[in-house]
Write a protein that binds this DNA or RNA. Structure first.
Lengths: 156, 156
DNA sequence: CCATCGAGGTTCAAATTTGAACCTGCCGGT
DNA sequence: ACCGGCAGGTTCAAATTTGAACCTCGATGG
């Protein structure tokens, strides 16, 4: 069998830059959102998806698909958000099993308060650091990376 | 005050590609390493750093700096790795407070077993999906992003 | 119509992560 | 030599995450 194909120096640089940037970015965003408005990055993302959805609501499974965590994790987070009054569960008429999570007015207002600071930080930490060309490359390259991973997703 | 500067379409694409790729990648690597050799990606990274270090050992604080998690998180992981016999703690002669974590022979052997599959997956999911040019851009761009975040690290 | 399979969510226990104390012991200033 | 501050790690409780088991239905093929 062939020797494993180790990463050369450039590949290693790219790999570590990718991993480190992701981790640091997440930490920063979490921190800022927490001290700014008291929610985590994950919760913020949930609110964003709901806000963007038709009627500002989505089924749990749709949310779980868009986000990247497990079903039970989503159940937990939605419960938290519901306790905080930012989201409300509603059962589905046509399918008794299904559950919709909908953004409440408080949730919408939270989003409005959180978004400016969040976006500004994303801009400061990522967008503004890259040239437009680099940004496009990242979008294309990592977009393709993402697409492939989603396709080959081991169906759990 | 100025309207918050929202992200345009390209910026949004880049941002989401970046976030999604990071999350999916981590999930995949964790899965593979776990079912392959029974360690997490984080633990793998710890072993790698130790292996690369002089005398195959590092102080806890050095490790914590290289990795991206909290001090207590590292204590926990090192304890786990020590239970598994992959790492050994050793106290420092010159500074009683300091603790060294060193790779054991079992740890080295684990790394040798884990690395080929891990590297192959990184290659398959990221490296081989990008063109050399894209790879270089990612290394440069995200490298700079990482550097800036580390510099401006709010000293905790 | 009936048995099954599988989808949609939740629950539960176990593993992990985090942040805030908390100990010790190094160090600089007085 | 003595004190206050801080660096290096650990501990502890609380929050989160994960995966497996479970429950309830909807859809499908006989």
């Amino acid at each position: 069998m062939a020797e494993p194909q180790w990463l050369n120096e450039d590949e290693l640089r790219a790999w570590y830059a990718f991993v480190a940037a992701g981790a640091l970015m997440n930490r920063r965003l979490d921190q800022q959102l927490k001290e700014d408005v008291g929610i985590t990055h994950l919760q913020y993302e949930i609110l964003v998806r709901l806000d963007a959805a038709k009627d500002r609501e989505l089924r749990m499974s749709e949310l779980a698909g868009a986000l990247l965590n497990s079903k039970s994790g989503l159940t937990y987070q939605i419960t938290q958000l519901e306790k905080a009054g930012l989201v409300a569960r509603r059962s589905c008429a046509s399918d008794v099993r299904a559950v919709y999570a909908g953004l409440t007015d408080a949730g919408r207002s939270m989003l409005e308060r959180a978004a400016p600071g969040h976006v500004a930080l994303v801009r400061e930490l990522l967008i503004d650091v890259l040239t437009p060309g680099q940004l496009a490359t990242v979008a294309d390259g990592l977009g393709e990376v993402t697409r492939r991973m989603q396709e080959s997703e081991a169906p759990r």
